[in-house]
Simulated assay, not measured.
Amino acid sequence: MITLLADGHEEKIDGLVVPHGVPILGWERKPHGWCRGDACIPSFRAVAAETEDGVDLVRFAELLGRQAVADLDEGVVVVGEPAAPALGRAPEFGPLAGLRGTKVALVFWASWCGCRYDLPAWEALHRELGGYGFSVVSVSLDRDPQDAREWLADVTHPAVIDADGRIAELYNVINVPTVVWIDEEGRIARPQDTMTATDTFRSMNGLSSERATAALRRWVIDGDAGTALRELRAPTGDERLARLHGRLAAWLFRDDRRAAGERHLARAAELAPHDLAIRRGLMPLNGVDPFGEAYFDLRQELEDSGVAIYRPLPDWHEEAPR
């Protein structure tokens, strides 16, 4: 048996070749092809994944624009999210579907980041600007939900814990704090941006929360997003693949298979060395202090390589250190 991790679910399958007639990832075989709702993959394309014995799960995922990583030694396969069909629109998840008609600041944070201390300030902005048709939605990148919950005890804004990393994958988030602005029609008003709501760690990140929150108020009240960019930054193929190895590593760490987890974590770091959401975010599951020496060694590694730790858009931020 193999464990399949896909679409936020975990299930057991007999192998990577799925018998004919069995639905795959929510798709069903019809006479004219594989269909899910009104969407269909025609038979002439589907044949690339079909064999005499069944349908190759990994090849089928690729037909859907989804990457997959299998570790047969550990008996697990993970399937990633579909590539974004339109980078100018916000991928929907959880509370976003109910916030159409409202401007949203999508705030990515984690308990392993000092940005956890910004949550009360984000909550204050949520309450202050709510009357203008605005909402904060916070997304914790903690792999252990319990680590995030104590910081969410007093918030009233919609809050989600992205324990399997799927939302970070959808929004191509590589570090926290990262904020995305979404307009009333679900369009990207400002893409992934390093943004703070307080100056608690300004000496480290060089960012002005005063400028950032003033710009946010202008956008909410006056409609000025302050940037010509209206699309999410697209991930590379290696970045997408790294997230799958990171998801596998997290699952293996939780199952107390540390050696295998470290192997997939190392592969993720090789593919996307700059992705701190993976490399730092998995430290707690691996028994490593995310505020300790390992994190500062990682910072030094990236700085020596010329990789920016914080990646703000340049128009209303001060220059961030590299």
Rank of each mutant, 00 (worst) to 15 (best):
V107D: 04
A105W: 00
F108R: 03
R116C: 06
V107I: 13
F108N: 03
F108P: 05
F134H: 00
L129K: 14
Y117T: 15
S111V: 02
V104D: 13
L129G: 14
F108G: 03
G131N: 04
E123D: 12
L106P: 02
W122F: 12
V104N: 04
R127N: 14
C115N: 10
G130Q: 04
E128P: 05
A105L: 10
Y132N: 13
Y132L: 11
L119T: 13
E128Y: 14
W109D: 03
A124M: 10
L129P: 11
W122S: 08
V104G: 07
F108D: 03
G131H: 06
A121S: 12
R127M: 15
G114M: 15
A105Q: 00
W112E: 00
P120C: 11
A110M: 05
R127V: 15
L125E: 12
Y132P: 14
C115L: 07
Y132E: 14
C113V: 03
R127F: 12
L125R: 12
A110D: 06
P120A: 08
F134I: 02
A121Y: 07
G131P: 05
E123P: 02
G130N: 05
W122K: 11
D118P: 09
C115S: 14
G131K: 07
G133F: 06
F108Q: 03
C115M: 14
C113K: 00
